[in-house]
Design a protein around this nucleic acid. Sequence first.
DNA 1: ATGAAAGCGCTAACAT
DNA 2: ATGTTAGCGCTTTCAT
Lengths: 338, 338
Amino acid sequence: MAATIRDVAHAAGVSQSTVSRALSMPELVNPATRARVMSAARKLGYQPNRAARGLITGRTGNLGLIVPDLANPFFSTILKGMQMAARAADYSVFVADTDEDASAEVELLRALAKQVDGIVLCSPRSVDVGLADLGTDTPVVLINRHVDNRPSVTFDSADGMRQAVEHLAALGHRRIAYVAGPRTSWSNGERERGLRQTATATRSDIVHLGYFPPFFDGGVAAADLAVASGATAVIAYNDVVALGLLSRLGARGVAVPGQLSVMGCDDIGMSAMTHPALTTVSAPTHEAGRATVALLLQLLDGEADTTALHRELPTQLIVRATTGVVPAPDHRPAEVTR
Amino acid sequence: MAATIRDVAHAAGVSQSTVSRALSMPELVNPATRARVMSAARKLGYQPNRAARGLITGRTGNLGLIVPDLANPFFSTILKGMQMAARAADYSVFVADTDEDASAEVELLRALAKQVDGIVLCSPRSVDVGLADLGTDTPVVLINRHVDNRPSVTFDSADGMRQAVEHLAALGHRRIAYVAGPRTSWSNGERERGLRQTATATRSDIVHLGYFPPFFDGGVAAADLAVASGATAVIAYNDVVALGLLSRLGARGVAVPGQLSVMGCDDIGMSAMTHPALTTVSAPTHEAGRATVALLLQLLDGEADTTALHRELPTQLIVRATTGVVPAPDHRPAEVTR
DNA sequence: ATGAAAGCGCTAACAT
DNA sequence: ATGTTAGCGCTTTCAT
């Protein structure tokens, strides 16, 4: 049986309160007794029972993360970032995978709420309704999605698309196809917004190929439309979709980037591992995980209002040495005068 | 403030004990009272506090997973499988990422032990010493590694290599290079064992190219050795290493599979998403996650001895339609007599 | 079938 | 500076 605070108190010849204090508020106890307590604790391998502590303090020392799919690198990287930041703050993290099921989400949210001090919710496309009644007791931070004045951490996807289109425009692409993600996805909306704005600014055309599942198969399905669209470059909703494009294009014998340039989005680890590597726009997921923890801790310390706490992370165009993006066929770069 | 069992008891006009019983041992309470209790509980949105329950039952209802890197799909898939099985059994899962740091592992193991009923440890290469003193209080199941008579779930990697080599041998490959993983990795040992055995049986040569980090860069680093080895096919320690090989080979202009066939191992999701797709040997990580939960639950129910509980999952050669593996240059298939 | 009471391990007033 | 006491929310004897 594990040692309790009683055992330590006995061994050190003091009361439980003294042990408790020696551990949590060391400055309030005599250095000599403290030393005795510490040594006893170490000898017995004492580890405080966090559940018991939480029962009285009202703090569990746990954070929760709810994601649609842990096998998706986008989410597992968020988890990783969150995990690291949580550990640094001496918090543990619970994780729950809804398996893309929005109803499971609500259920998990409710179940987790009792066991954690705060929840990070990654809910790219669930209805807003479900979000309304929650967060009253346990603070909830949204990630990759912004809703009214709920705390959230998002990526500046619109700016990412600006960078992407400007990059393509600089290479002479004027007709750019976009493989959209789910219609109800918040981040897809942001991307389309960025796309439209920059298209106007650069006088390029965006051909919207339609809404596709944000998976490999989505890209496979969209590839032929991309070819038929007459665009010289395609931007995919995310990297995995871009890989799907690449696969189908390869199978059809359409050379990338020779006949068609392809860009992804999110910069998941794998995007650097293909050959040619994927040109993409980074979404700092790891950083986002850390940021949610920071936000949550602020909320818990009462340092901030529960509403209107929002952090937007910058995105960054990633162009690799070997890449799936080249100048448009008819592109003639500006002449250099010396 | 969330409703407690007291509130429910008041509302239903019964004692706390009755509420407790109505919820956990319904057959012991009068159907009428039970109905009253249930309705009161629902009305108040009562959710039992698991921490408080755990304090007395000694069961937390939580399981823990410790992995070296959550960003690695191999581990995140295990987590996913574990998560699903845990949820089905009404358990929650804590996750901890050691960031490939073996010392953090021990620390996390100790910290987690108090908050969970059982731990799954994914520790491909930490020293055995650290494992010895643990698992006395909290059951620990090892995954992808087998140590003395400690409960574990492993993949039959040796058999996977048999399938791989037989596949290659059937295609006429007689000189096969192997890009090994870390020297201290248990699964690498198993793979080498399978490789050696099957090499003898099929009268092929295995060229051991040396030990490499089990990451993309490991494959990049090994690629030139593979070419120089004179082998007609390469087997990589895992899929990510195989992708590294592919990348460097592509950069050098070595055609895959034209000049060199490449095989991976583990069948991570991405291996199906490259073009050409990777031929590989599956490691049922998702299934493994589920299996560890099953094992843990058995151990907790006292249905099994803590020692000698071991489950080995089969591996399976995965050959895809478009593949990085073709017959050896000089291969002449057996003539078919009809 | 139900209630009263004890106590899980811990912290937080309230003494001293 | 330290000890005593009460109680967090729950389950579980032990009575009734």
